[in-house]
Design a protein around this nucleic acid. Structure first.
Ligand SMILES: [Mn+2]
Ligand SMILES: [Mn+2]
Ligand SMILES: [Mn+2]
Ligand SMILES: [Mn+2]
Lengths: 221, 221
DNA sequence: ATAAATTTTTAGACAAGTCTAAAAATTTAT
DNA sequence: ATAAATTTTTAGACTTGTCTAAAAATTTAT
């Protein structure tokens, strides 16, 4: 059994690994968790003793198989709860994260299994992030940043990179949401802004947005 | 804002008050929470400073209005979550309490409001206990212990006094659940056992059961 | 290769919450 | 009214998790 704190460290390390970081150092973890390196140092010792990770002094950490499973299960809970909040309790996608941060620590295997059933076995959370299965496996779909699409290419909006409340609310205002079809009408070389077609309307989006929005390319023929 | 520990103390004191205890002493609280008197003594000081209760040395504690509201809100959350688990996630009434003990501490006013809406504004939890409203008011319905009914009287089963998993499972086995009509066929003076009619079947129940089951008397005419 | 800058660890302190053991206050019994 | 029993408080210790400041190890620059 893991404490709330241990779970949060585990999750942070897991996310760093999934995001492809190689040297997951004390400092990297401290930054991710907005805490101090000395605190991380202490916690690494504890987690290492609990055999969820292997630590090589001054080298960095790596989750064990057990560690990955444990962390993935927390992420699974987090994302299932987010689906619940949006689908059943009418939360909008920018309101769910904080509450899910709390709910992810509730301990009850039956609860999470039944929630999964109740929600109809969702595969992705409201931000387009994949929900790990019971064994902790992540199914990643192929997706590209909107900024990588070429003129006249199109695809379906399937996720966000930055899922801050500010960005999500901004997308809401622009009428951009997951599942919508987007077509690149034009690319502006000057500031890398895009002219896109969404809902049969023309819209101009900045490069910053285009770098935070994931699209599943239509294999357009 | 209150810590998990503070919330559990508050809830314990609230339950003692609702159950009509007068001198809610350090020892009484310690017993309820299966902790030590010295720990309670410390916590009472803290809660007193936070103005949720008034403490008179060697006399006992009394919740302030603010304390009652705060505690009732935790109980409200606990019972709404229990309804959710039974109604939506197919938990049985003997499985929900432990999980609700965790869920009751999740902090999100919107969550609990929306949960209330989603569940259809339930007034009672799966054990027949009333759900406090947003202001913390408890609506108590009139109910009597099965043991107080007279021969030939009947009523609807509306609650349990002992809601331990063992007792609830025992009731399940006997086919007794909330909402069912029970008629007293006979009372045995020797051991205070009862012969009752439920679902058109005759059943014998011990005095111990009769003292833990609440009935809403049918004003039989 | 040595010095400088950076990263990591250790040492010591603190807050929350708990416990045991002893002291103090209160209640009950004689 | 005094003694005995009980309740409550205090004192001191321990755990978890955090922090600051300093020491140690490592990496980078010259
Ligand atoms: Mn999230
Ligand atoms: Mn968390
Ligand atoms: Mn309960
Ligand atoms: Mn609780």
């Amino acid at each position: 059994m893991f404490t709330l704190s241990e779970e949060n460290y585990l999750k942070a390390i897991y996310h760093l690994e999934v995001d492809g970081a190689k040297g997951i150092t004390t400092n990297a973890i401290a930054k991710k968790l907005a805490t101090k390196a000395s605190s991380v140092s202490d916690m690494i010792k504890k987690l290492s003793e609990k055999e969820v990770l292997i630590y090589k002094k001054y080298q960095g950490v790596k989750l064990t198989e057990f560690g990955v499973k444990t962390a993935a299960n927390i992420v699974r809970k987090h994302r299932l709860w987010e689906v619940f909040l949006v689908d059943k309790l009418n939360f909008s996608w920018d309101e769910v994260h904080e509450v899910a941060e709390q709910l992810e620590h509730i301990k009850s295997p039956k609860l999470i299994n039944q929630l999964d059933v109740f929600l109809g076995y969702p595969t992705h959370d409201p931000h387009g992030d994949p929900i790990p299965d019971k064994e902790g496996n992540l199914k990643t779909i192929e997706k590209s940043l909107l900024s990588t699409l070429l003129k006249n290419e199109s695809g379906i909006c399937v996720g966000v990179d930055d899922s801050s409340s500010e960005f999500l609310k901004f997308l809401d205002k622009k009428g951009i949401s997951l599942g919508k079809k987007i077509t690149i009408l034009d690319k502006e070389a000057f500031d890398n802004s895009l002219s896109i077609l969404i809902d049969d309307k023309k819209l101009s989006v900045s490069n910053k947005i285009a770098n935070n929005l994931y699209i599943k390319k239509a294999h357009n023929g």
